[in-house]
Design a binder for these strands. Structure first.
Length: 347
DNA sequence: AAGTCGGGGGA
DNA sequence: TCCCCAGACTT
């Protein structure tokens, strides 16, 4: 079957404008999958160094499966959405246990892997096995919404169904992998979210958003509810040997399986006196000095939470019972809020 | 169907 | 400041 004019033009644009990215120079489904997990909700420039680190540390899916989760999380540190890293590791183990170490390339089996949803299964199966599956990511939503002037919300159920069918109708079944990569690259480089370069676009004569002057209003997306505020008081203990104490964050919630200093979450900003009261009733270590590291709360913004963090330095009288040497902190995966503090704090 | 899960960067 | 980024999972 002949590709649609849309696909032909997109692929022609792709031939001239595609970036040279490392995961485009391989057919190894393990590497393709790894790149797709890293790139979920993540810009290429941000994900690129992480991809290289993972390939260097774990050249094969067996290497990844045999690692400790903590190693994987340390490598993932700073990239966010840490469930991706936990699921990545679990999926690698599944490949060994359920697929005899052979990474699947078909949609149905890919979808069984933890962390692999419709997008990633479509991407890997179309790239590696030329399976006729249409990808639907933020780029594709934007390109299709504009080119066909569709105002269904991309984060509504009717919108998802409509765009999925449209993407499938447009797919070049003979070259689904190239088609999918082309439309995503087109969205990333040409049909950008803000101020797209429509004057220099090969589709500008047939684009319905341009025709109706609605390019800057598409795609339509329902707004997220505003973030909630949280107040984190980190108790940074230092004993006479310059050892400190950290603990693993258990689920549910943010930063599962990452480490942090002992945390007191309060329902408002706290002053020194209130911290002293808290310490006297909740912390058994005797401290010889208490000081506040940051005068104003450090604001750390996540998608759905705004964290107001204060670091309290506690000089402890006796050696800590479960000590961590300060210089060993980098062996533990931690959120950026804490690695920034550790970087700034000099003993 | 709505909420949750990070962090960074562009305008 | 707001929005988006090669989405997936839970409730």
């Amino acid at each position: 079957m002949r590709p649609t004019p849309f696909s032909t033009q997109i692929q022609s644009w792709y031939d001239k404008n595609k970036r040279d990215l490392p995961w485009r120079n391989t057919n190894d489904p393990y590497k393709i999958w790894l790149s797709e997990i890293i790139l979920q909700q993540t810009r290429v420039v941000q994900g690129l160094p992480y991809y290289q680190k993972f390939i260097d540390s774990f050249p094969t899916v067996s290497d990844l499966a045999n690692a400790q989760e903590q190693e994987v999380l340390v490598l993932w540190q700073g990239l966010g959405y840490y469930s991706r890293a936990r699921n990545l590791h679990a999926a690698a183990k599944m490949v060994l246990s359920e697929f005899d170490g052979v990474f699947p390339t078909d949609y149905q089996n890919l979808k069984k892997l933890k962390g692999v949803g419709d997008y990633t299964a479509s991407a890997v199966s179309s790239f590696c096995a030329q399976e006729p599956q249409a990808v639907l990511d933020g780029n594709v939503f934007r390109v299709l919404a504009r080119y066909f002037n569709i105002d269904l919300a991309i984060n509504s159920t009717p919108g998802q169904k409509y765009f999925k069918q449209l993407a499938l109708d447009l797919l070049d079944k003979d070259q689904p992998g190239k088609h999918n990569q082309a439309i995503m690259e087109f969205g990333a480089l040409q049909c950008t979210p803000k101020s797209p370069d429509c004057n220099n676009c090969p589709l500008n004569t047939s684009c319905l958003a341009i025709k109706h002057g609605k390019t800057d209003q598409l795609p339509v997306k329902h707004k997220a509810k505003p973030a909630r505020m949280r107040f984190f008081n980190y108790l940074v203990k230092l004993d006479p040997d310059n050892n400190t104490q950290i603990q693993k964050r258990e689920g549910p919630g943010i930063w599962q399986n990452l480490y942090e200093f002992p945390l007191w979450e309060s329902d408002a900003a706290i002053d020194t006196h209130e911290v002293e009261t808290y310490l006297n009733t909740h912390v058994t270590d005797k401290f010889v000095n208490l000081s506040r590291f940051n005068d104003k709360p450090k604001i750390h913004k996540l998608s759905h939470q705004h964290l107001y963090a204060t670091f309290w330095i506690l000089e402890i009288e006796k050696p800590i019972t479960d000590p961590i040497a300060w210089q060993d902190l980098d062996k533990y995966p931690m959120p950026v809020l804490l690695t920034d503090f550790i970087k700034a704090f000099k003993i």
